[in-house]
Amino acid sequence: MSAAVLRFAGVSRAYGSGEQTVHALAEVSFEVAAGELVAVMGPSGSGKSTLLALAGGLDAPTSGAVFMEDVELGALDAAALARLRRDRVGYVFQDYNLVTDLTAAENVALPRELAGVGTRAARREAIAALAEVGLADMAGRFPDQLSGGQQQRIAIARALVGQRRLVLADEPTGALDSRTSLAVLEVLRARIDAGAAGVLVTHEPRYAGWADRTIFLRDGRLVDATGPRQTPEQLLGRTA
């Protein structure tokens, strides 16, 4: 396994002040290496989404530091963080993943166009990424013409188009049926195996089984972690 793509070093995040302070994350440390998919599990309100937001630079830690390939995110300004997300980080959310006024191909090409890549070149990259997730023939469709599963696979294609090194997926199968969920996870796993690093937030132990290891959060604290390559059955046993 190669060097860490994502590193949390004693990261805490608190909201509010005084007696109303809420500690969303407290002293969390972990790493994700290239080619590794880490699942994050925990009950609602345990800090999973906060962790993902911090990993993508959408939020800033109260203390500690988040590193992306040795670049501390806290040292970057808003524009630099946006460029980092555009060039190296891909997001997949539970739903509402695509820009409604853009076609599938344009959604996938969007980060590349924002980065200054020409329309045709960006579209070529987008079509190639769509072909990888088996949706090249849907390139001209708008999000409201696609099923939920198709939308998620397109979001994964967008999350990995270009030279993205890190995929952050927040409950990507939350709104999908089992069969579609498996198809989405297959695509995600394939891209991680191709060299990207990934963080998968999920409630479902069976989906966490697609990860190389799983970390558990409770009340903002990292309370447990599985070793590498746990089976879904093992995971189910630990979380029961």
């Binding site: 993508g56 946006a82 997300r85 555009r86 060039d87 959310f93 924002l114 980065a115």
Partner: peptide, 8 residues
């Protein structure tokens, strides 16, 4: 969403 995928 555009900001999340890298729009400044």
């Amino acid at each position: 969403m555009i900001a999340a995928v890298g729009g400044t």
